[in-house]
Design a protein around this nucleic acid. Structure first.
Lengths: 209, 209
DNA sequence: TATATACTATTACGCTACGTCAATGTCAAT
DNA sequence: ATTGACATTGACGTAGCGTAATAGTATATA
C-alpha cells in the first residue's frame, strides 16, 4: 500500500505536520517523492512509524529515536520485546499511581494518614531516561523476512479502505452535527451540510452491499 | 512542615526550576517568602502540587490546570475520584498498546497478519486527553452559562443528550461494520444488524429536526 | 574569624516538537 | 472552467522547562 501524508496521518493518528517534521529531521523519510513533489509512504514506513511511536510512548527524544532505528544493528523484533517490558513497567507504575490516588482519597476522608513523600509515589519519570541508555547499545543482527500472500492482503486492504472511508464520513457527520449543536442553531447551514454528508454516507453504506 | 524549593523538589520528584516556574506563572505560589527572599512551602502547597501532577499525568496543560484548581467550585476529593477513573482508562489504553506490541511480534514472526491501521491501536491517548480537556472546559463553561440562562439550558441539554445518543449509535454502527469486515463476511447477520442500527440512527437524525 | 560549601535568588537565552498561518501548486470532479 | 480537497515550502509562535551566569545567604568547619 502507498499513502500520502494525509492518509498516513489518519491511520497512524498523528498530524501531517508531524510527518513533515519527521521527514525534515530525517527521522522518517517517505519511500519516494512523486512527480508533483508529494511524499509517498509505503508499508515499510508504516512499520517504522509504529516503532517511532512506541519509543515516543516511552518518553524518548526524537533525536535518540533516530539514532536507535538508524543503527545498522537495530533488530526490529528484539526492540518490540523490549517495548513489551517497558510498557509493562509503565503499567506497574500506573498501578502505583492509582493506589496513590486511592490512598489520598482515603486520607482526605479521614481514614488514613499519608506522609508528604507518599503523596508523590508513582510519578517517577527518571527510569525512562535510564532505559534510553540501555537502548543505545543494541547488539544483534537480524533481518525480518516479510513475504505475505498478496492476494489475501489486497482483498483485506480493499475492504479495509471501504471501511475507512465509511468511518471518515461518519466522523465528518458527527463533527458537523456537533458544530451545529454548539452554535445552538440546528436549522443552520451546518445542519444542511450534515444532511448532505449523511446522504453520502448512506450511499456508501448501501453500495457496499 | 515547611519546605524550601530544594526539599520540596526532592520529595515531589520535580526540578527546582519547575517550582520556580510554577510560581512565576501563578500556578503554585509558596506559602510565604522569608526575610532573605526564599520560597517557603507548607503542607497545603504539597497537596496542591500533588494535584497539579495528577492533572499533568493526564496531559492537561498548565494553563488549564491553573483554571481548574483556582476555580472556587473546585472540589479536592471529587477531583481525585475523577483522577482515579482517568488513570484507570489510561491503564486500559496501555493494555491495548501492550496487546498491540504482542500482536506485532506475532506478525513479525509470521504467525499473524496485521492491517496497517491495527498497528496503531493504543496510541490514541491523545484523543482521550483532548477530550478530557474539552470536557473540563465545557463543564465549567456550562456551569457559568447555567447561572445566566435557565430557559435555554433545557433545550440545550436536550439537544446535547440527543447528540450524545446519536454519537453512541453511530459508534455502534461502526463497531458492527468493523466486525463484519474483519470476519470478511459483509453479507452476514452482522451486516444486517448494522443496517438496523443505522436505521435507528437515521430515525434519530431526522427526528431532531 | 575566615572560609568553604551548600543553598537561595533573578534575569535571560536555548531547546524540543510540533501548531498555525500564509502563499502557492496539483488533482479530480463537477 | 472552476471548485474543493489535497499537496508543497517557508516562517513565526508556543509550552515547559534546561541551563548557564551572576549574585546574595546560611552554616559548618579550620
Amino acid at each position: 500500500m502507498e499513502y500520502t501524508v494525509h492518509k498516513l496521518s489518519e491511520i497512524a493518528g498523528v498530524s501531517e505536520r508531524t510527518l513533515r517534521y519527521y521527514d525534515q529531521i530525517g527521522l522518517l523519510k517517505p519511500n519516494k517523492i512523486n512527480a508533483s513533489g508529494y511524499r509517498i509512504y509505503s508499508s515499510n514506513e508504516v512499520d517504522v512509524l509504529q516503532q517511532i511511536l512506541f519509543y515516543k510512548e516511552l518518553g524518548i527524544e526524537l533525536s535518540s529515536i533516530k539514532k536507535i532505528i538508524t543503527n545498522p544493528k537495530f533488530d526490529y523484533t528484539e526492540s518490540l520485546k523490549k517495548h513489551l517490558l517497558n510498557l509493562e513497567q509503565k503499567k506497574e507504575n500506573l498501578e502505583i499511581l492509582i493506589n496513590n490516588v486511592k490512598n489520598t482519597i482515603l486520607s482526605k476522608e479521614g481514614d488514613k494518614i499519608m506522609s508528604d513523600k507518599e503523596k508523590f509515589e508513582g510519578f517517577k519519570n527518571k527510569m525512562i531516561e535510564e532505559n534510553e541508555e540501555k537502548y543505545g547499545d543494541e547488539i544483534r543482527e537480524k533481518y525480518g523476512n516479510e513475504e505475505i500472500e498478496a492476494s489475501n492482503r489486497k482483498i483485506k486492504n480493499m475492504t479495509k479502505e471501504d471501511y475507512d472511508k465509511i468511518q471518515k464520513l461518519s466522523l465528518e457527520v458527527n463533527e458537523t452535527l456537533k458544530l451545529a449543536f454548539e452554535q445552538g442553531d440546528p436549522t443552520s447551514e451546518l445542519a444542511m451540510k450534515a444532511c448532505k454528508l449523511h446522504k453520502e454516507w448512506l450511499t456508501y453504506f448501501w453500495s457496499s452491499y
